[in-house]
């Protein structure tokens, strides 16, 4: 049984089409594995090898990876939700009702998107504090820390813009409260708020603006920054191995 499966898998991997996509082949050697990473546009952001110590759970709690995981879930569910959503008043709210009652698994999609969004905000914070307490922000990783702080803000903005989209009481007043804070900025506060909402109150213009921010501008920016963030992990010497290498050796 297992042999048959293995043979089948081999056949697929030896296939000409497969080989045209994944050139590295099936080898078990480190060369093959290295090529797998190097020749993949996504994986090549990472170095071919990693310190074994940094893979232990206690090193990172995998918080960065998990944050990225929520981001992936959010992108997928978000795209599916966009198929059912009109950023207009009051259709946006009617779409929520349709998602809940008529769209197949619509309520599941919305739940997953919502809870993942909360999870992502939480994980971003957790990731940041974990990095700080480990001291992993120290040179040469200082710039990656800054990118991380920007990504934190980006995550908050993504979540905040998404908060308005259901156009229910919760959304409307949460965003009203938030946008009123913005107007407290001296001198340019009112202007900022106007720019943010596309008007003087949270209305259809604000909904459209938040929609575009939420679905286009912010995700795009986040993807770019995440790519840089990952790239810099490699360029700054991999995942931070811990405060004292000597301690690691002692084991």
């Amino acid at each position: 049984m297992a042999n048959t499966l293995d043979r089948l898998a081999d056949q697929v991997r030896e296939n000409r089409i497969w080989r045209s996509i994944f050139r590295s082949g099936t080898g078990e050697s480190n060369l093959h594995r290295a090529l797998t990473v190097q020749q993949n546009v996504f994986l090549h952001l990472f170095s071919v090898k990693a310190r074994k110590r940094t893979l232990e759970f206690r090193a990172t709690w995998y918080l960065g990876a998990l944050t990225f995981g929520t981001f992936l879930i959010l992108v997928i569910t978000g795209i599916l939700l966009m198929l059912y959503y009109h950023p207009s008043v009051p259709q946006a709210y009617a779409d929520m009702k349709d998602l809940q009652f008529v769209v197949s698994s619509g309520v599941f999609l919305r739940n997953l998107h919502r809870w993942s969004a909360h999870a992502m905000v939480f994980l971003v914070f957790a990731h940041m504090f974990k990095v700080f307490y480990r001291g992993a922000y120290r040179p040469p990783r200082e710039f990656n820390w800054v990118i991380g702080v920007v990504l934190l803000l980006m995550t908050l903005l993504l979540s905040y813009t998404g908060y308005l989209l259901p156009w229910d009481q919760l959304a409307f007043w949460a965003v009203t409260v938030g946008s009123n804070i913005a107007s407290a900025v001296p001198v340019i506060g009112a202007k900022m708020r106007f720019l943010m909402l596309g008007g003087t109150a949270v209305n259809a213009n604000a909904l459209l603006r938040f929609y575009v921010l939420h679905c286009v501008i912010l995700p795009f920016a986040a993807v770019v920054l995440i790519a840089i963030h990952f790239w810099r992990i490699r360029k700054d010497g991999g995942i931070y191995p811990g405060e004292s290498p000597a301690e690691g050796d002692a084991k």
Binding site: A94, K97, D98, Q100, F101, V102, D168
Partner: peptide, 15 residues
């Protein structure tokens, strides 16, 4: 009216 469950259609809910 939009609801398709007994509870949601007939009763007062949070929503």
């Amino acid at each position: 009216g939009a609801a398709t469950t007994v509870e949601e259609a007939h009763s007062a809910t949070e929503q």
